[in-house]
Design a protein around this nucleic acid. Structure first.
Lengths: 340, 340
DNA sequence: CTGTTAGCGCCTTCAT
DNA sequence: ATGAAGGCGCTAACAG
């Protein structure tokens, strides 16, 4: 991998400003940071010199000297194009920016190797912390970072194999609620479409779905379960598969918005009256001309809580790891069908 | 604004590793970077010591010493929650990462002051460049950064008042094509819904809309033009306003996806057969049960080109500013209505 | 109020 | 093949 950090034309330094203002570098340093010990007249002179030279403090040097972090917090997500992650990022940033911290977003595109190298790079840059939505079950790179004293907060998944703060969604409860709603409407054969099995949120939501069935005296049937779809096209194919079973499900529960949208397309194409429910709200869900039950929750709040936890952790290291859970609620769009 | 960069527990440095491996710091530095001048045996010993200590090279110190950039590129956008910007970010990052550069995303939430301070911070961190989608017409902060030698690339808007590379979309042509399509279907009274007037893309698209009308011998009527809507709700209100005119437009052209979606909602609510066209494709556009003509273009490519331009610029400073334009094409969803 | 000294962690240069 | 000196730009600590 080529190292392309550019050769920068030399920028003026403290000393250049000092020379021009006929003071010492130290005085410039103080004047520019509004140290009250500097004579107002001197301060103004220094300021003027700095402006004339177009002086910019070098945050890199400052950071090194202060021996603290860089004022940066790394946020690791798998796919920024998913509105879920971009909203999360905004929530995180809204909190961090009030604390003078900058958010560096790293996109891993689901690649564990990319995630690992990203973490290493962030640690090397001495970030003040890392907020991550880990892609896979192997979190050793995060464990290492945490062990080296970098505050780590996980969002939407719990830590595996080490201790860290985390902010979760009520995956189990939300999935159970939505499935129960379908059951209450008279559905017995309910299909499940979900993300890869290795993903925590996926398995929790599957658990919730099964719990709802069991609680209603319905035996979960794995023939109605399709897991592993990440894109809407795959999800549509999986849904079509379920719909063409000899005894097709009369309702589908989808564990995330990619699967819900895919299922919607499959149902539209098949022309059936299959009821649809899913995890995650999404734009235009109300305009699809199909009844839809969605498990909604405050993504921004998820991000804000993650940001707050990280800030707390930069202040008080040590202490037991904290875990909070963001609640979910059901949203209904259109009118819901009942089985024939 | 509190400065919350955390106090980090001391991490092992080169010297710590040197002591443990019983060599000098210099040798450690070389060994860790695979300098061939180091005896393999020594190198292994050093490596072992580094691992045992959990040593991580300090990128901050490295960066300072090398006197080059930080290996970071700042990307400034107004609203990450808009899929347009998150896709752009992915396109940019896909190019930069192959060059060993990291993308730092800054969200300004349309606030010019936030944008200014973001630029300053990036310059202070000695980023290797800045890619920006400026929020407003005042670009002096970017001009300053450029003048100080930081490569600046603008995406989707041209530089105002200074020279810089930029990557644009064929705003004029796309808007003209879409409007002509509506005209070809027999529409004469065509409304326009757009973003704030100060935004370049908005004015270009308005120009395209007007050019199509004029070209067809229709006199543009400002009574059919509504500008300034940023959110779908405002756009829906503006569209409803047009639809309730004495002689309502039989078709609407929207200058971005927020306005298109708002217009869609207004048309649905009003129950009219108003034809709809807009700039930007969006997910589920095909599922709205309404005919829709959209101006589509490759956002990722926009990002990739911006990334490439920046990389080029870090290598060869100087030279005339470059400007490229990403082409657009029309996409049709559903069947299109003709005026009564 | 201002200046001097020293050093953050690393790497270039020049010895050895 | 390895090491010692010096300094990147900045600031804390201690003069004066």
């Amino acid at each position: 991998m080529p190292d392309n950090r550019g050769t920068r034309p030399a920028q003026p330094t403290l000393r250049d400003v000092a020379e021009r203002a006929a003071v010492s570098a130290m005085t410039v340093s103080r004047a520019l940071r509004d140290d009250p010990r500097v004579l107002p007249a001197t301060r103004d002179r220094v300021r003027a010199a700095a402006t004339e030279l177009g002086y910019r403090p070098n945050e890199v040097a400052r950071s090194l000297r202060l021996g603290k972090g860089s004022g940066l917090v790394g946020l690791i997500v798998t796919n920024l194009a998913n509105p879920f992650y971009s909203r999360l990022a905004l929530g995180v940033d809204s909190v961090l920016r009030t604390q003078g911290l900058k958010t560096v977003i790293g996109n891993t595109a689901q690649d564990p190797a990319a995630e690992r190298s990203l973490v290493e790079d962030l640690v090397a840059r001495r970030v003040d912390g890392i907020i991550a939505v880990p892609a896979g079950p192997d979190q050793r790179h995060l464990a290492t970072a945490a062990a080296e004293g970098v505050p780590v907060v996980l969002a939407s998944r719990p830590p595996e194999g080490f201790d860290a703060d985390c902010v979760l969604v009520d995956d189990f409860g939300g999935a159970k609620d939505a499935t129960e709603k379908l059951i209450a409407r008279g559905h017995h054969r309910i299909g499940f479409l979900g993300s890869p099995t290795a993903v925590y949120t996926g398995t929790e939501r599957l658990r919730g779905y099964r719990a709802a069935l069991t609680g209603a005296g319905i035996t979960p049937d794995d023939a109605y379960v399709r897991q592993g779809q990440q894109q809407t096209a795959e999800a549509a194919r999986a849904a079509a598969g379920l719909l063409s079973l000899p005894a097709p499900p009369t309702a589908l529960f989808c564990s995330n918005n990619r699967n819900t949208i895919g299922a919607f397309r499959a149902i539209s194409a098949a022309g059936t009256r299959t009821a649809l429910a899913g995890f995650d709200d999404f734009e235009l869900a109300d305009a699809l001309g199909l009844p839809l039950t969605l498990v909604d929750y405050d993504i921004d709040e998820l991000g804000r809580q993650a940001g707050r936890m990280l800030v707390d952790r930069t202040r008080e290291r040590g202490g037991a790891p904290r875990r909070t859970v963001v609640p979910t609620h059901l949203v209904e769009y259109g009118t819901t069908t009942t089985p024939d």
